[in-house]
Design a protein around this nucleic acid. Sequence first.
DNA 1: GAGTCCATGTAATTGGTTACATGATTCC
DNA 2: GGAATCATGTAACCAATTACATGGACTC
Lengths: 186, 186
Amino acid sequence: MSLPHAILTALLEKPSSGLELTRRFDKSIGFFWSATHQQIYRELGRLERAGHIRALPSAAPTRGGRKAYEVLPAGRAELAAWTAASDEPRPLRDALPVRLRAAAVVGTEGLADELTRHLELHRRRLADYRAIAARDFPEGPDAPGDARTRLQHVVLDGGVRMETFWIEWLGEALEAVRLIETSGED
Amino acid sequence: MSLPHAILTALLEKPSSGLELTRRFDKSIGFFWSATHQQIYRELGRLERAGHIRALPSAAPTRGGRKAYEVLPAGRAELAAWTAASDEPRPLRDALPVRLRAAAVVGTEGLADELTRHLELHRRRLADYRAIAARDFPEGPDAPGDARTRLQHVVLDGGVRMETFWIEWLGEALEAVRLIETSGED
DNA sequence: GAGTCCATGTAATTGGTTACATGATTCC
DNA sequence: GGAATCATGTAACCAATTACATGGACTC
């Protein structure tokens, strides 16, 4: 149930149309809560019906026309309540560890290539995060700055740490798979 | 589309009934691909209809009775194909970074407690993983051992690394939130 | 005015979650 | 033989994914 709250956050940062939100999700908040444009449009409809956001009056209400939304007080209140609420972490679901365990039973054939490919993906994403950090937080993690900037920096740093985790672990996994394949145990 | 493959893996490791699978998911493979008993029963039905598994003949086919399943050659082939196939990582969806960003806009009220709670959850889970590692892989990561054991160890070590990541990041986030709250910027 | 992209949607399907139902077994 | 628990399921719902549809703007 976080998509509406991710959208409220994005709209508070800057009122936007559905497509603008989609683009911003692709390169910012969506790193941590991804969403397609279909999800976003559906959720915008719900939020509007719930009275949490409204279309800016200047927008043309035609089908093909842009519609920009802004957050209403009720939406901000809802977001504040959600931020403070207690919520369990959602259960993890990642295919790669499962594939490694499957390979432990049916053999590692083809797995090294796939691990290498994922390693490369995560390396690229880490580079992206670092580029964003250099652009948006040039003063580094311990710079003073206001509360908002520091929190956003912490979030981005979470992305950096996460990708670093993947890169290290995939390296370990690759090493193990290669060792098994060269020693011919497979 | 990994649940059937997680189940095939578990069944290859050891033929089991639905409830046994549910329990094993709760303390092993489900750390990386969680599933409830309803999902598991549904998937067992599908896998049986697809000819990938079959109920062991010894099992009683009554409603309340246990039914143990084993993997058929077609199921093993399917699992091997899936293990080697190319597959994109599924998009990330985690609420905590979103909540931090929301807090950057609506304030950090209540967030520190929640971060502390999550930190404790991850610490406990890390301790669980380490206990399992000490029990199942007492010789450490560089021990010789067979291919299967080494791969399983790599998977578990992924869990350890993952929890370590969370603990470190949550620590950083907590520090930032506390700094903001004590300096009264909120 | 045909073709292409831009922007907003609808529809169908799948996977996951929550709540409930029912037969078998065990324990007193 | 009644209650609790074990084990297997069904049903309804919701979120996410995939594929497709439609109106408008811009371009040649």
